[in-house]
Structures are given as C-alpha cells and as structure tokens.
C-alpha cells in the first residue's frame, strides 16, 4: 500500500507546493480587503502567515522521520516545502513591519529589546542562506557542505516554535503543541544506543 502511495505521490510535481504557497498571502489579502478576515484583518493575516509558515517548517522536518518510520517517501517535495516556508516567514515579517508595527524607527529597537521578536528575526535571518542555496546548482556546487548547511533547519524550527510559545498570553496549549511536535521530530532523528525509530521494512 505504501508503495502505491509513494508511486502516486511521485506524479505530483513539487512546484505545486510553491504555487499554492506563493498565492496564499495574496489570497489572504483578498479576503482581508473583502472583509472576510474579521474586524482586525492585519493581525489575522500576520497570525495566519506565521502559523502556516510554522506548519510548513514542521512538514519539512517530518519527511525524514516519515520515511524512516513508515517508508513514506516525500523527499522530492522537501526543497519546495522549505522554500515555501521561507516565503511565508518573509510575508509574515512584511505584514508585521508594514501593516502592524508601521513605525520603522521603532522596529530595530523592538527587534533588539523584545526576546520573542529577536528569536523570530534570528530564525528568519538563518533561513536566508538556506533559501538562497535551494537550487540544483548550489546543491552540486556545495556538495557535502550543502547537507551540513541545511541542518540549520533544526535550529530554525526550534526558534520558530519558541517564538510562538513566547508570544502567547496566559498558558495556551496550541503553541506548546507546535514546539512539542518540533522537538519530537528532532528526537526521532537521534538514534540512541540500542533504540531507533526506524522500522525498516524487510
């Protein structure tokens, strides 16, 4: 059954993910302008983009454990997922800057002074070299360095999850579940002595 799934999924081109992700912020803008994002559309856009970005990051992080644990092979989508995640994080940042905070002289102070913003910003900055090298030429050119460089995804996902946890008011489960998922997916990569998540099929 998994082989059929893998075969069928291979027929879907990876660029479909980029296309949907690429249009998403514009679709939100359309909803906002037509009054379908509630009475505080800028905040709604900001939150939705941030949440979708985190979901894409988690999707990218899940690909290796999915293959190791269940034999589901979605590796061909991973780069598209990563690039889309970067694009969504960038849109989230742009909405925060232009529609929410607006005061450009204050933004730098905010980035330095407020830890959850510092952390979110750090995640974005770390994503830049990864996004820039997400093309075939860079993969060939950088070889093993490319693989090492792209392990920064682990740091980015942790920072993203932490960013969400830190901005909640009171105790809220949702951000904790996101960060928890990131941590579990990272732990699944660790092969502790005599213990592995890899249920390799015969």
């Amino acid at each position: 059954m998994i082989d059929t799934l893998n075969k069928n999924v291979r027929k879907l081109p990876a660029w479909v993910i980029c296309l949907i992700g690429g249009l998403y912020p514009f679709w939100l803008l359309w909803l906002a302008l037509s009054g379908d994002l509630g009475v505080d559309p800028a905040k709604a856009m900001e939150h939705l983009l941030g949440e979708r970005a985190l979901q894409m990051l988690i999707a990218g992080l899940a690909i290796t454990p999915l293959r190791n644990a269940f034999g589901i092979n979605l590796i061909k989508f991973r780069r598209a997922i990563g690039v889309t995640a970067f694009y969504l994080v960038f849109s989230h940042l742009l909405v925060w800057l232009v529609l929410d905070v607006q005061l450009f002289d204050q933004i730098w102070a905010d980035i330095l002074k407020r830890p959850y913003i510092t952390i979110g910003m750090a995640a974005f900055v770390i994503m830049i070299p990864l996004a820039v090298t997400s093309n075939n030429w860079s993969v060939r050119k950088l070889g093993r360095t490319w693989r090492k460089l792209h392990k920064l995804t682990y740091v980015i996902c942790l920072l993203g999850g932490l960013h969400f946890v830190m901005l909640a008011k009171g105790f809220q489960w949702e951000p904790v579940l996101y960060l928890g998922t990131v941590i579990v997916l990272l732990l699944m990569r660790l092969k502790l002595a005599g213990f592995t998540f890899a249920w390799k099929r015969a």
Binding site: D40, A42, K43, D100, Q102, L103, Q106, D110, R114, Y116, M166, L167
Partner: peptide, 9 residues
C-alpha cells in the same frame, strides 16, 4: 515587556 504601548491600532 513584549510590545510598545506608545501607539494603538
């Protein structure tokens, strides 16, 4: 501590 109170939306 997490945001400025100088302005509002």
């Amino acid at each position: 501590p997490r945001w400025s109170q100088a302005t509002e939306r």
